[in-house]
């Protein structure tokens, strides 16, 4: 089988410190995105386990798979979870979720957990959209701007590039920084144009790292424009899969002149984690009302 360069590694993690058997409130959040899906379980408001998988073509099924993967090797079953919230592009199609909450609210709440209460400006670089979010110390959203259409600032654009240049997607970031001088960026308007330009650069004899640098630079430029439109208040942080691409992150930080906070867990789970925290709050409220 030919190597699939765009295929990023699916993830799974269980906390070594938390045990659901000792907990009272077990809540879960599922983020079904167009490219990836995450399942997160929190026990009494603490992160316990998560999974990150490819969504594929069937999003209700992806929701179930994400949750099952998160529960794998924990002994927990769906019956043991008190409340499940769905978020993301596929949130209305999760039959076992009690409620759907938009990914804007969930990302801010999740980022507040991952980065702490100092975060005020968030950039979410998702699979097919990117968003700039302003929030307060509780993770409540005060403003947001979503670019809902173009692949140019998104994971899908990065997958296209990795595939075109035959570079495993996890290597794109470090290799893009391994250049002698920073090249001019390729088109930042459209990933289709960027792809054509990249092919042109390869034909001119540019080495692959340099082309990667030009693309990461274009992507960073595009999201910097989005962020400047919203205004940047420190502290700043990035969520979504591309937060793990050091080539894009470094260039964004240079573009806005602000260094981002370092995440204490996988930043791709921010949406599902926020959903799980909303679920936890709703579970507590239901318990009080009973």
């Amino acid at each position: 089988m030919a190597q699939e360069y765009w295929r990023w590694e699916e993830g799974k993690w269980i906390s070594p410190e938390v045990d659901w058997r000792n907990g009272r409130n077990i809540a879960a959040g599922i983020d079904v995105g167009s490219v990836s899906s995450q399942g997160v379980i929190v026990v009494d408001g603490e992160l316990y386990a998560f999974s990150s998988i490819r969504t594929g073509s069937d999003s209700p099924e992806a929701a179930r798979r994400a949750l099952e993967r998160a529960m794998e090797d924990t002994g927990l079953t769906m019956e043991g979870i008190g409340y499940i919230v769905g978020t993301g592009y596929g949130r209305v199609n999760i039959p076992f979720a009690a409620k759907a909450i938009t990914e804007i609210a969930c990302h801010a709440r999740g980022a507040n957990y991952i980065y702490g209460p100092t975060v005020r400006t968030l950039l979410d670089m998702g699979g097919q959209d990117c968003k700039a979010i302003r929030c307060d110390e509780r993770g409540k959203v005060t403003a947001f701007l979503m670019n809902d259409k173009c692949a140019a600032g998104t994971g899908r654009g990065m997958e296209v590039m990795a595939d075109l240049l035959a570079v495993p997607i996890g290597d794109v970031g470090p290799r893009s920084l391994d250049v002698e001088a920073e090249p001019d960026p390729v088109s930042s308007t459209c990933v289709v144009f960027a792809k054509s330009e990249a092919m042109g650069l390869m034909r001119k004899g540019w080495n692959v790292n340099l082309v990667l640098a030009a693309y990461c630079s274009a992507m960073a430029h595009r999201v910097v424009t989005l962020l400047e439109r919203m205004g940047i208040e420190e502290a700043f942080a990035i969520t979504g899969g591309i937060a793990k691409n050091v080539g894009v992150v470094r260039r964004i930080e240079q573009g806005i002149g602000v260094t981002g906070l370092k995440p204490r867990v996988d930043p791709q789970i921010a949406g599902a984690l926020g959903a799980a925290l909303f679920a936890d709050a709703l579970l507590q409220r239901a318990a009080k009302a009973a």
Binding site: T142, A143, M146, N147, T189, C190, L226, M230
Partner: peptide, 16 residues
């Protein structure tokens, strides 16, 4: 909260 819904593409920025 100020919510900007929409997109930017090659022809411009369209947000409500």
């Amino acid at each position: 909260m100020k919510a900007h819904y929409g997109y930017t593409d090659g022809s411009g920025s369209y947000y409500i």
